[in-house]
Amino acid sequence: MKHSEARVGELRDAVVLANGFPLLSGVDVEIEPASLTVLTGANGAGKTSLLRLLGGLVALNAGEGSVLGIDLVRGDRRQLRRRVGWLGHEGSFYDDLTVRENLTFAAKALERPLDDLRVALARMGLASRADTTTKELSAGQRRRLGLAWLLLRRPELWLLDEPYASLDDEGRTFFDELLGEVVASGATVVVSAHDPLRSASLHPRTLEMAGGRIVGGS
């Protein structure tokens, strides 16, 4: 697929199958750089599958697509995955490692200085829980750990699967602020959520999904 330099992601009639069942059944979408896109829709609408496709975590079975200049059919998806950040709603870490050990593992894998780790912990309010094993964290704290992991990564494309789940009001406000900072820094964010974002100041583009397709949006 010919990639447009102006776009972070571009899909044409994208189909993703799992055991013959279509998770995505013909998605057309363009993702602009330094933008915030929100995918909304009911359970099973295809939001997570679209995020996983954009992150190179699943293969494109039919159609065309490119993300960050890498063709999803012929390109090296491993190269793409190195440039995206993923925050899943299932939890993203090793449960038996502490917060600090999980982040140290990520920092060493990415060859980031360990000072970045301290900054990420402080930024996410997890400094006091640094030596707690991940399985002992609350759902909201696990979500913050996921964001700390992404702050360490500093990816070009942030893919966040229902990041507001398990967050209280304070957490949601904090998260909105963080999203604003990320977009302002030039990174691109795609978020899945059941409802439109609360914060109007973020000016997100909303895409509504149903049955593995994009059926509307703003």
Binding site: G55, R81, F93
Partner: peptide
């Protein structure tokens, strides 16, 4: 220990 879907996806993006 690697097979939780979230862990698998996150570690995949580390590019090891």
């Amino acid at each position: 220990v690697e097979s939780t879907p979230g862990t698998r996806a996150s570690v995949a993006t580390l590019g090891l």
